[in-house]
Design a protein around this nucleic acid. Structure first.
Lengths: 99, 99
DNA sequence: CAGGATCCCGCGGGATACTG
DNA sequence: CAGTATCCCGCGGGATCCTG
């Protein structure tokens, strides 16, 4: 079944994923949470230069989207968040090879 | 050899890749160029809502970074650009499965 | 420690009009 | 067609101070 480019764009999996990873801070937060759960201040130290305001906002957005969950002041990836693993592995390999 | 989080962050392949894919328009442009070379107006039609200014800027940035090349008014991915394929495949699978 | 509340600024990006 | 040139606005995000 042929699908028009228009429909493909409106309901595109890549588009939807891109919306989740729409900025660099978000990507770096997930990168750090992939390794292990972390607290607010730990993330703040790892992400040099991030403001408390931005970290708060990004974490809230991630929780709202269901990628991250918060348990007793500790942030961790949900299943949906862990599913991003393959993307991050691909990014890691790409960065080493091409950039 | 252990590596500190700081160094890991400063020279992180994921970080460098994230900088290349830093916004949604850029991701969508690459997504469309993966399928085939395209001209300015073709991209403009596919990327509904993009302004000529933004498309121009994004394409120039992509050319400067070496991900895209321009030949006789036709844009295509370079080897470095095609290397992103694995990332986009992962994003595609993720989007279908989780979003 | 883990944020919340304000203030403020730059720039990403749309709209529009023009050109080779 | 394939852009360039302005104008203009919103908001992403830093800095700073405050709170439970």
């Amino acid at each position: 079944m042929p699908m028009s480019n228009k429909n493909e764009c409106l309901d595109c999996p890549i588009h939807k994923t891109a919306d989740l990873l729409s900025d660099v801070w978000t990507i770096l937060i997930i990168r750090d949470l992939i390794k292990s759960n972390k607290r607010f201040t730990e993330l703040e130290k790892l992400l040099e230069g991030i403001s408390t305001r931005t970290l708060t906002l990004k974490l809230k957005k991630l929780v709202k989207e269901g990628l991250v969950e918060k348990k007793e002041a500790s942030y961790s990836l949900t299943k949906k968040g862990k599913g991003l693993n393959t993307i991050f592995e691909a990014m890691n390999k790409y960065g080493k090879k091409f950039v």
